[in-house]
Amino acid sequence: MKKLPILLAGMTLFGSAQATVYQFDFTAKIQEMVEFSPQTFSGGAVASSSLSGSTVSVGDQLTGHFSYDTATGVFSHFGGSTMYSAPAAQNSLDASIGGASISLGNANYSSTNVQVANNSAALGGADSFGIANVSANAYASQMMAVSFFDKSGLALSASTMPDQLDFASFGQSSFYYTYSSNATHAMMGANGALTSVTVTPMPAPVPEPETYVMLLAGLAALAWKTRRR
Rank of each mutant, 00 (worst) to 15 (best):
M1P: 08
K2V: 06
L4A: 04
L7F: 11
L7D: 14
L8A: 12
A9R: 14
L13K: 14
L13D: 13
F14Q: 14
G15H: 13
Q18Y: 08
A19N: 11
T20H: 08
T20M: 06
F24C: 02
T27C: 07
I30G: 07
Q31T: 13
F36W: 15
P38A: 07
Q39N: 14
Q39L: 14
S42E: 10
G43Y: 05
G43H: 06
G44R: 07
V46K: 10
S49G: 09
L51Q: 04
L51I: 05
S54P: 00
T55E: 13
V56K: 06
V56L: 15
V58W: 02
Q61R: 08
Q61H: 05
Y68R: 01
H77L: 03
G80C: 01
G80E: 01
Y84M: 01
P87F: 02
A89D: 03
Q90P: 00
A95D: 02
G99L: 11
S101K: 09
N108W: 05
Y109I: 01
T112G: 09
Q115H: 06
A117P: 09
N119D: 13
S120M: 05
S120A: 15
L123R: 04
G124P: 05
G124A: 07
G130K: 11
V134Y: 12
A136E: 11
A138G: 02
M143P: 02
V146D: 09
F149H: 12
K151N: 08
S152A: 14
L154S: 15
L156W: 10
A158F: 14
D163L: 15
Q164I: 11
D166F: 06
A168Y: 08
F170Q: 01
G171C: 00
Y176F: 14
Y179P: 05
S180C: 12
S180P: 00
A183H: 06
T184R: 08
N191F: 10
T195W: 04
T198L: 09
P201Q: 06
A204S: 14
P205G: 07
E208C: 02
E210Y: 07
E210P: 00
T211H: 13
L219M: 06
L222M: 11
L222E: 01
A223L: 10
T226I: 12
T226E: 13
R229Q: 10
